[in-house]
Design a protein around this nucleic acid. Structure first.
Lengths: 171, 171
DNA sequence: TCAACCAATTGCAAAATGCAATCAGTTTGG
DNA sequence: CCAAACTGATTGCATTTTGCAATTGGTTGA
Protein backbone atom coordinates (compact mmCIF):
# COMPACT_ATOMS: atom_id res chain seq x y z
CA UNK A 1 0.00 0.00 0.00
CA UNK A 2 2.23 2.81 1.28
CA UNK A 3 4.60 3.60 -1.59
CA UNK A 4 6.78 6.33 -0.21
CA UNK A 5 9.47 6.47 -2.87
CA UNK A 6 11.84 8.10 -0.46
CA UNK A 7 14.58 7.74 -3.04
CA UNK A 8 15.61 5.76 -6.09
CA UNK A 9 18.55 4.16 -4.31
CA UNK A 10 18.52 0.39 -4.86
CA UNK A 11 19.00 -0.37 -1.18
CA UNK A 12 16.26 2.03 -0.17
CA UNK A 13 13.84 0.71 -2.77
CA UNK A 14 14.53 -2.85 -1.68
CA UNK A 15 13.77 -1.89 1.90
CA UNK A 16 10.51 -0.31 0.80
CA UNK A 17 9.45 -3.70 -0.57
CA UNK A 18 10.51 -6.03 2.25
CA UNK A 19 12.21 -3.89 4.88
CA UNK A 20 9.63 -4.41 7.57
CA UNK A 21 9.37 -6.79 10.46
CA UNK A 22 7.41 -9.53 8.71
CA UNK A 23 7.72 -9.64 4.91
CA UNK A 24 11.08 -11.42 4.85
CA UNK A 25 9.92 -13.84 7.55
CA UNK A 26 6.96 -14.83 5.39
CA UNK A 27 9.17 -15.20 2.34
CA UNK A 28 11.67 -17.23 4.37
CA UNK A 29 8.91 -19.66 5.35
CA UNK A 30 7.77 -19.97 1.76
CA UNK A 31 11.27 -20.35 0.34
CA UNK A 32 12.82 -22.59 2.98
CA UNK A 33 9.78 -24.03 4.69
CA UNK A 34 7.75 -24.83 1.59
CA UNK A 35 4.70 -23.09 3.05
CA UNK A 36 2.05 -22.24 0.47
CA UNK A 37 -1.19 -21.66 2.43
CA UNK A 38 -2.42 -18.94 4.74
CA UNK A 39 -2.95 -21.35 7.64
CA UNK A 40 0.46 -22.91 7.25
CA UNK A 41 2.13 -19.53 7.38
CA UNK A 42 -0.08 -18.47 10.26
CA UNK A 43 0.36 -21.45 12.56
CA UNK A 44 3.76 -22.89 11.77
CA UNK A 45 5.77 -19.68 11.81
CA UNK A 46 8.00 -19.81 14.85
CA UNK A 47 7.71 -16.10 15.35
CA UNK A 48 3.92 -16.18 15.60
CA UNK A 49 2.53 -13.66 13.16
CA UNK A 50 -0.99 -12.30 13.68
CA UNK A 51 -3.56 -13.14 11.03
CA UNK A 52 -4.32 -9.53 10.11
CA UNK A 53 -0.65 -8.75 9.64
CA UNK A 54 -0.20 -11.89 7.56
CA UNK A 55 -3.18 -10.98 5.37
CA UNK A 56 -1.87 -7.47 4.91
CA UNK A 57 1.66 -8.59 4.02
CA UNK A 58 0.49 -11.24 1.57
CA UNK A 59 -1.57 -8.58 -0.18
CA UNK A 60 1.32 -6.15 -0.18
CA UNK A 61 3.77 -8.73 -1.48
CA UNK A 62 1.34 -9.56 -4.28
CA UNK A 63 1.06 -5.88 -5.16
CA UNK A 64 4.84 -5.77 -5.41
CA UNK A 65 4.92 -8.83 -7.66
CA UNK A 66 6.67 -10.99 -5.09
CA UNK A 67 3.84 -13.50 -4.80
CA UNK A 68 0.94 -14.77 -6.83
CA UNK A 69 -2.23 -16.37 -5.55
CA UNK A 70 -4.33 -19.10 -7.10
CA UNK A 71 -7.24 -21.31 -6.12
CA UNK A 72 -6.25 -24.61 -4.64
CA UNK A 73 -7.99 -27.22 -6.85
CA UNK A 74 -8.40 -29.57 -3.88
CA UNK A 75 -10.28 -27.13 -1.72
CA UNK A 76 -12.51 -24.36 -2.99
CA UNK A 77 -11.72 -22.09 -0.12
CA UNK A 78 -8.01 -22.67 0.01
CA UNK A 79 -5.73 -20.24 -1.71
CA UNK A 80 -2.28 -21.30 -2.75
CA UNK A 81 0.48 -18.74 -2.82
CA UNK A 82 3.45 -19.01 -5.16
CA UNK A 83 6.81 -17.35 -5.31
CA UNK A 84 7.68 -15.35 -8.40
CA UNK A 85 11.05 -15.05 -10.09
CA UNK A 86 11.37 -11.74 -8.28
CA UNK A 87 11.10 -13.35 -4.85
CA UNK A 88 13.11 -16.43 -5.79
CA UNK A 89 15.86 -13.96 -6.61
CA UNK A 90 16.05 -13.13 -2.91
CA UNK A 91 17.86 -16.39 -2.16
CA UNK A 92 21.33 -14.79 -2.28
CA UNK A 93 20.15 -12.06 0.10
CA UNK A 94 18.71 -14.66 2.45
CA UNK A 95 21.98 -16.57 2.28
CA UNK A 96 24.02 -13.49 3.20
CA UNK A 97 21.60 -12.54 5.95
CA UNK A 98 21.84 -16.03 7.37
CA UNK A 99 25.61 -16.04 7.20
CA UNK A 100 25.85 -12.68 8.92
CA UNK A 101 23.40 -13.71 11.62
CA UNK A 102 25.27 -16.92 12.21
CA UNK A 103 28.55 -15.08 12.54
CA UNK A 104 27.40 -12.22 14.76
CA UNK A 105 24.23 -13.11 16.62
CA UNK A 106 23.24 -15.70 19.22
CA UNK A 107 21.43 -17.97 16.77
CA UNK A 108 20.05 -21.28 17.91
CA UNK A 109 22.03 -24.21 16.55
CA UNK A 110 18.86 -25.94 15.45
CA UNK A 111 17.52 -23.06 13.41
CA UNK A 112 20.77 -22.16 11.72
CA UNK A 113 21.34 -25.42 9.88
CA UNK A 114 19.83 -23.97 6.70
CA UNK A 115 22.02 -20.91 6.88
CA UNK A 116 25.05 -23.11 7.34
CA UNK A 117 24.16 -25.28 4.34
CA UNK A 118 23.66 -22.22 2.14
CA UNK A 119 26.91 -20.74 3.36
CA UNK A 120 28.89 -23.91 2.72
CA UNK A 121 27.25 -24.57 -0.64
CA UNK A 122 28.03 -21.13 -2.01
CA UNK A 123 26.53 -19.44 -5.08
CA UNK A 124 26.42 -22.67 -7.07
CA UNK A 125 24.12 -24.23 -4.53
CA UNK A 126 21.98 -21.11 -4.28
CA UNK A 127 21.44 -21.37 -8.01
CA UNK A 128 20.50 -25.04 -7.80
CA UNK A 129 18.06 -24.30 -5.01
CA UNK A 130 16.55 -21.44 -7.00
CA UNK A 131 16.08 -23.78 -9.96
CA UNK A 132 14.19 -26.12 -7.66
CA UNK A 133 11.98 -23.28 -6.45
CA UNK A 134 11.26 -22.26 -10.03
CA UNK A 135 10.16 -25.79 -10.82
CA UNK A 136 7.81 -25.89 -7.85
CA UNK A 137 6.40 -22.40 -8.00
CA UNK A 138 6.61 -21.46 -11.65
CA UNK A 139 6.46 -24.92 -13.16
CA UNK A 140 9.43 -24.44 -15.44
CA UNK A 141 12.84 -25.88 -16.09
CA UNK A 142 14.03 -28.54 -13.71
CA UNK A 143 15.72 -31.17 -15.81
CA UNK A 144 17.46 -32.66 -12.82
CA UNK A 145 16.32 -31.97 -9.30
CA UNK A 146 18.68 -30.93 -6.57
CA UNK A 147 20.33 -33.59 -4.48
CA UNK A 148 17.49 -34.88 -2.38
CA UNK A 149 19.17 -35.09 1.00
CA UNK A 150 20.57 -31.57 0.72
CA UNK A 151 17.22 -30.25 -0.41
CA UNK A 152 15.55 -32.08 2.44
CA UNK A 153 17.82 -30.55 5.05
CA UNK A 154 17.46 -27.16 3.40
CA UNK A 155 13.69 -27.26 3.49
CA UNK A 156 13.39 -29.14 6.77
CA UNK A 157 10.65 -27.26 8.58
CA UNK A 158 10.68 -25.72 11.96
CA UNK A 159 7.83 -28.02 12.91
CA UNK A 160 9.77 -29.69 15.71
CA UNK A 161 10.55 -26.34 17.28
CA UNK A 162 7.01 -25.07 16.79
CA UNK A 163 5.57 -28.21 18.35
CA UNK A 164 7.94 -28.01 21.27
CA UNK A 165 6.97 -24.40 21.89
CA UNK A 166 3.27 -25.27 21.64
CA UNK A 167 3.81 -28.24 23.93
CA UNK A 168 5.64 -26.15 26.49
CA UNK A 169 2.79 -23.63 26.43
CA UNK A 170 0.15 -26.29 27.11
CA UNK A 171 1.68 -29.25 28.93
CA UNK B 1 15.97 -1.25 23.22
CA UNK B 2 13.17 -3.61 22.24
CA UNK B 3 14.77 -7.06 22.21
CA UNK B 4 11.91 -9.33 21.26
CA UNK B 5 13.85 -12.52 20.59
CA UNK B 6 11.01 -13.84 18.50
CA UNK B 7 13.21 -16.76 17.53
CA UNK B 8 16.83 -17.83 17.22
CA UNK B 9 16.65 -18.06 13.43
CA UNK B 10 19.60 -16.20 11.87
CA UNK B 11 17.40 -14.31 9.44
CA UNK B 12 14.97 -13.31 12.15
CA UNK B 13 17.72 -12.21 14.51
CA UNK B 14 19.34 -10.17 11.75
CA UNK B 15 16.03 -8.44 11.14
CA UNK B 16 15.71 -7.65 14.81
CA UNK B 17 18.97 -5.74 14.58
CA UNK B 18 18.48 -3.78 11.34
CA UNK B 19 15.11 -4.81 9.92
CA UNK B 20 13.44 -1.46 10.34
CA UNK B 21 12.90 1.46 8.06
CA UNK B 22 16.03 3.41 8.94
CA UNK B 23 18.91 1.41 10.41
CA UNK B 24 20.23 0.09 7.10
CA UNK B 25 19.84 3.52 5.50
CA UNK B 26 22.04 5.02 8.21
CA UNK B 27 24.59 2.24 7.84
CA UNK B 28 24.52 2.65 4.06
CA UNK B 29 25.37 6.34 4.43
CA UNK B 30 28.22 5.54 6.80
CA UNK B 31 29.59 2.69 4.70
CA UNK B 32 29.21 4.16 1.22
CA UNK B 33 28.85 7.85 1.97
CA UNK B 34 31.63 8.15 4.50
CA UNK B 35 29.31 9.96 6.93
CA UNK B 36 30.59 10.02 10.49
CA UNK B 37 28.69 12.86 12.22
CA UNK B 38 25.14 13.33 13.39
CA UNK B 39 24.61 16.41 11.23
CA UNK B 40 26.00 14.78 8.14
CA UNK B 41 23.67 11.84 8.52
CA UNK B 42 20.78 14.16 9.30
CA UNK B 43 21.10 16.63 6.46
CA UNK B 44 22.73 14.74 3.61
CA UNK B 45 20.57 11.64 3.70
CA UNK B 46 18.45 11.67 0.58
CA UNK B 47 15.58 10.04 2.37
CA UNK B 48 15.36 12.77 4.97
CA UNK B 49 15.44 11.14 8.38
CA UNK B 50 14.05 13.02 11.38
CA UNK B 51 16.52 13.97 14.08
CA UNK B 52 14.75 12.10 16.85
CA UNK B 53 14.66 8.91 14.80
CA UNK B 54 18.31 9.32 13.90
CA UNK B 55 19.26 9.79 17.56
CA UNK B 56 17.24 6.74 18.53
CA UNK B 57 18.74 4.52 15.82
CA UNK B 58 22.31 5.58 16.53
CA UNK B 59 21.76 4.67 20.16
CA UNK B 60 20.17 1.36 19.21
CA UNK B 61 22.93 0.48 16.77
CA UNK B 62 25.50 1.23 19.45
CA UNK B 63 23.66 -1.05 21.87
CA UNK B 64 23.85 -3.79 19.26
CA UNK B 65 27.56 -3.26 18.76
CA UNK B 66 27.16 -2.00 15.21
CA UNK B 67 28.62 1.44 15.94
CA UNK B 68 30.90 3.13 18.39
CA UNK B 69 31.01 6.77 19.34
CA UNK B 70 33.98 8.94 20.25
CA UNK B 71 34.75 12.60 20.75
CA UNK B 72 35.94 14.39 17.69
CA UNK B 73 39.31 15.91 18.66
CA UNK B 74 38.78 18.86 16.30
CA UNK B 75 35.52 19.95 17.85
CA UNK B 76 34.63 19.46 21.49
CA UNK B 77 30.97 19.08 20.76
CA UNK B 78 31.27 16.87 17.75
CA UNK B 79 30.82 13.16 18.18
CA UNK B 80 32.31 10.86 15.61
CA UNK B 81 30.65 7.56 14.90
CA UNK B 82 32.60 4.55 13.70
CA UNK B 83 31.64 1.30 12.11
CA UNK B 84 32.59 -1.90 13.90
CA UNK B 85 33.71 -5.17 12.34
CA UNK B 86 30.14 -6.33 12.86
CA UNK B 87 28.69 -3.58 10.68
CA UNK B 88 31.52 -3.69 8.14
CA UNK B 89 30.51 -7.33 7.69
CA UNK B 90 27.23 -6.09 6.23
CA UNK B 91 28.93 -5.14 2.95
CA UNK B 92 28.01 -8.44 1.23
CA UNK B 93 24.40 -8.02 2.30
CA UNK B 94 24.38 -4.45 0.99
CA UNK B 95 25.88 -5.67 -2.27
CA UNK B 96 23.18 -8.32 -2.70
CA UNK B 97 20.44 -5.88 -1.75
CA UNK B 98 21.77 -3.40 -4.29
CA UNK B 99 22.00 -6.04 -7.00
CA UNK B 100 18.47 -7.22 -6.36
CA UNK B 101 17.11 -3.69 -6.33
CA UNK B 102 18.88 -2.87 -9.53
CA UNK B 103 17.49 -5.95 -11.23
CA UNK B 104 13.89 -5.69 -10.03
CA UNK B 105 13.04 -2.16 -9.00
CA UNK B 106 12.85 1.22 -10.74
CA UNK B 107 16.14 2.50 -9.37
CA UNK B 108 17.50 5.83 -10.46
CA UNK B 109 20.52 5.47 -12.71
CA UNK B 110 22.43 8.05 -10.70
CA UNK B 111 21.96 6.36 -7.35
CA UNK B 112 22.68 2.84 -8.51
CA UNK B 113 26.26 3.38 -9.65
CA UNK B 114 27.56 2.03 -6.34
CA UNK B 115 25.45 -1.05 -6.56
CA UNK B 116 26.67 -1.65 -10.09
CA UNK B 117 30.31 -1.30 -9.07
CA UNK B 118 29.86 -3.74 -6.20
CA UNK B 119 28.04 -6.15 -8.46
CA UNK B 120 30.71 -6.04 -11.14
CA UNK B 121 33.56 -6.20 -8.66
CA UNK B 122 32.25 -9.28 -6.93
CA UNK B 123 33.34 -10.72 -3.56
CA UNK B 124 37.00 -9.83 -4.13
CA UNK B 125 36.10 -6.17 -4.38
CA UNK B 126 33.78 -6.33 -1.40
CA UNK B 127 36.69 -7.64 0.62
CA UNK B 128 38.99 -4.86 -0.56
CA UNK B 129 36.37 -2.28 0.29
CA UNK B 130 35.88 -3.82 3.73
CA UNK B 131 39.62 -3.65 4.32
CA UNK B 132 39.46 0.04 3.50
CA UNK B 133 36.61 0.55 5.93
CA UNK B 134 38.55 -1.29 8.65
CA UNK B 135 41.49 1.02 8.11
CA UNK B 136 39.31 4.12 8.39
CA UNK B 137 37.02 3.07 11.20
CA UNK B 138 39.10 0.62 13.22
CA UNK B 139 42.55 1.93 12.37
CA UNK B 140 43.96 -1.45 11.47
CA UNK B 141 45.51 -3.27 8.55
CA UNK B 142 45.58 -1.38 5.28
CA UNK B 143 48.96 -2.07 3.73
CA UNK B 144 47.80 -0.96 0.32
CA UNK B 145 44.68 1.14 -0.15
CA UNK B 146 42.05 0.28 -2.67
CA UNK B 147 42.33 1.66 -6.17
CA UNK B 148 41.57 5.31 -5.68
CA UNK B 149 39.26 5.91 -8.60
CA UNK B 150 37.13 2.89 -7.79
CA UNK B 151 36.98 3.86 -4.15
CA UNK B 152 36.04 7.38 -5.13
CA UNK B 153 33.17 6.25 -7.28
CA UNK B 154 32.08 3.82 -4.61
CA UNK B 155 32.01 6.45 -1.92
CA UNK B 156 30.85 9.28 -4.14
CA UNK B 157 28.20 10.98 -2.08
CA UNK B 158 24.66 11.76 -2.94
CA UNK B 159 25.47 15.42 -2.42
CA UNK B 160 24.54 16.39 -5.97
CA UNK B 161 21.14 14.79 -5.62
CA UNK B 162 20.59 16.25 -2.17
CA UNK B 163 21.54 19.71 -3.37
CA UNK B 164 19.27 19.42 -6.36
CA UNK B 165 16.39 18.38 -4.13
CA UNK B 166 17.08 21.24 -1.74
CA UNK B 167 17.38 23.63 -4.66
CA UNK B 168 14.12 22.50 -6.14
CA UNK B 169 12.45 23.04 -2.78
CA UNK B 170 13.70 26.64 -2.46
CA UNK B 171 14.40 28.06 -5.92
C1' DT C 1 -26.74 -31.55 10.57
C1' DC C 2 -22.83 -29.95 12.59
C1' DA C 3 -18.26 -29.35 14.24
C1' DA C 4 -13.99 -28.27 12.31
C1' DC C 5 -11.65 -25.55 9.14
C1' DC C 6 -10.79 -21.72 5.56
C1' DA C 7 -8.94 -16.98 4.44
C1' DA C 8 -9.56 -13.12 5.99
C1' DT C 9 -11.80 -8.71 8.69
C1' DT C 10 -12.91 -5.77 12.66
C1' DG C 11 -12.15 -3.16 16.93
C1' DC C 12 -9.14 -1.42 19.95
C1' DA C 13 -4.93 -0.49 22.63
C1' DA C 14 -0.07 0.18 22.24
C1' DA C 15 3.92 1.39 19.90
C1' DA C 16 6.49 3.61 16.21
C1' DT C 17 6.96 7.43 13.21
C1' DG C 18 7.10 12.26 11.31
C1' DC C 19 7.45 16.94 12.17
C1' DA C 20 8.45 21.30 14.28
C1' DA C 21 10.22 23.61 18.00
C1' DT C 22 13.56 23.81 21.37
C1' DC C 23 17.87 23.15 24.21
C1' DA C 24 22.51 24.09 26.19
C1' DG C 25 27.13 24.10 25.10
C1' DT C 26 30.86 25.36 21.17
C1' DT C 27 32.88 27.54 17.63
C1' DT C 28 33.40 31.22 14.37
C1' DG C 29 33.45 35.88 12.32
C1' DG C 30 33.62 40.63 12.93
C1' DC D 1 34.18 40.25 23.17
C1' DC D 2 29.89 39.07 21.54
C1' DA D 3 26.35 37.61 18.50
C1' DA D 4 25.29 34.32 15.02
C1' DA D 5 25.71 29.86 13.50
C1' DC D 6 26.45 25.17 14.52
C1' DT D 7 26.85 20.93 17.60
C1' DG D 8 24.23 16.54 19.06
C1' DA D 9 20.44 15.85 20.74
C1' DT D 10 15.38 16.21 23.37
C1' DT D 11 10.43 17.34 23.81
C1' DG D 12 5.57 17.53 22.60
C1' DC D 13 2.13 16.18 19.69
C1' DA D 14 -0.51 14.35 15.75
C1' DT D 15 -0.57 10.56 12.59
C1' DT D 16 0.40 5.96 11.25
C1' DT D 17 1.52 1.28 11.99
C1' DT D 18 1.44 -2.70 14.70
C1' DG D 19 -0.17 -6.49 17.86
C1' DC D 20 -3.75 -9.08 19.73
C1' DA D 21 -8.31 -11.15 20.38
C1' DA D 22 -12.56 -11.90 18.72
C1' DT D 23 -15.37 -12.53 14.89
C1' DT D 24 -17.10 -13.22 9.97
C1' DG D 25 -19.13 -15.63 6.08
C1' DG D 26 -18.37 -19.35 3.75
C1' DT D 27 -16.61 -24.70 2.93
C1' DT D 28 -15.68 -29.26 4.06
C1' DG D 29 -16.07 -33.90 5.72
C1' DA D 30 -18.34 -37.03 8.86
Amino acid sequence: MAMDLRSGCPINLSLEVFGDRWSLIILRDMIFGGKRHFRELLTTSIEGIASNILADRLKRLMEFGMLTKADDPTHKQKAIYSLTEKSIALVPIMAQLGAWGRAWLPVSEELSIRAELLEDGGPAMWEAFMADLRAEHLGIGKVRPMDESVRGRLQAGYEAVVLRKAGAASP
